[in-house]
Design a protein around this nucleic acid. Structure first.
Lengths: 151, 151
DNA sequence: TTCCTTGCAAACGATTTGCATTGGA
DNA sequence: TCCAATGCAAATCGTTTGCAAGGAA
């Protein structure tokens, strides 16, 4: 995320939080910054490290829960079952994930609009036939990342 | 899965296990049967219930680990971070998942071959551009299932 | 006999929560 | 002041593991 985008995102986050009567504290700001700089969803432990332990794990989890509740962050679970957080798509834009099955790295990837349209039609079609109403989709591309390929 | 498919799958499982010097015991057979009848991936706790507690949880987890190691089962984590198991795609065929965000149900869905081809090309293209070598993909269609829609 | 397998109980690790304290509006 | 936010320690819960007993080849 560029610093310009980060500024814009910060205003949006501030709005989302105050709409809930929730404060935009230092710890929350630091989590947002760390995630804005990340190239993919981060685990609580990774964030704790990135923040150099300045936010205790229990507080960090509470921070993440508050931000998720306010729809500032989204949460998912990686292949080890560990929770990973990233900025919500309303801030980061729609994207998918490249997952390295060797080292576990998860990286964001964009998808061009025409292809995304194709995917959306496909997804809604499948859902309809099964009696579901589709509200979203998630595509994980599993493979081996560049550095694991050469290693 | 039809009973005919189940027979065939059972022979394949037997082969995969004996290739590893691993026995096809009663508990393992029961897990395979339960999963062959399931409409989507099951959590250990659900299997434990389906098997009416005949297999203690710790043994069940060991059974699942052995079967996964032998590539008879595949494991993933649902939106709560809980592990769910299903027959490997080599037995069940390639498919994707419909996820009901309301009740948590996960259901298998097939995808027609031409569309799947499109998806594969798309996925490999994205991976290549990021320096990854793609080995597979996973699509979760998130939405609301038929019974939650009417409820 | 020789290993693989099982069951129980204890251990683990990520995450959550109770409670007393702190701090911002 | 008042209530949200914080930090520590203890609790939770899905999952894993140590160990001794059971079972098939």
């Amino acid at each position: 995320m560029t610093s310009r985008q980060t500024e814009q995102a910060e205003r949006e986050v501030s709005r989302l939080l105050s709409a809930r009567g929730v404060r935009f504290t230092a710890a929350r700001r630091q989590v947002i910054y760390a995630l804005a700089l990340a190239t993919g969803p981060m685990a609580a432990g990774e964030l704790h490290g990135t923040l150099r332990g300045r936010v205790p794990l229990s507080s960090l989890y509470r921070t993440l829960a508050v931000l998720e509740e306010a729809r500032v962050l989204s949460k998912e679970h990686d292949s080890m079952g560990i929770a990973r957080y990233e900025l919500a798509e309303s801030l980061l834009g729609h994207h998918h994930h490249l997952v390295c099955l060797t080292c576990g790295e998860v990286r964001d990837v964009g998808i061009d609009p025409p292809t995304e349209d194709t995917v959306v039609r496909l997804v809604e079609d499948i859902a309809r036939r099964a009696g579901y109403r589709a509200t979203g989709h998630r595509i994980d591309i599993e493979g081996t990342c560049a550095s694991c390929l050469t290693a």
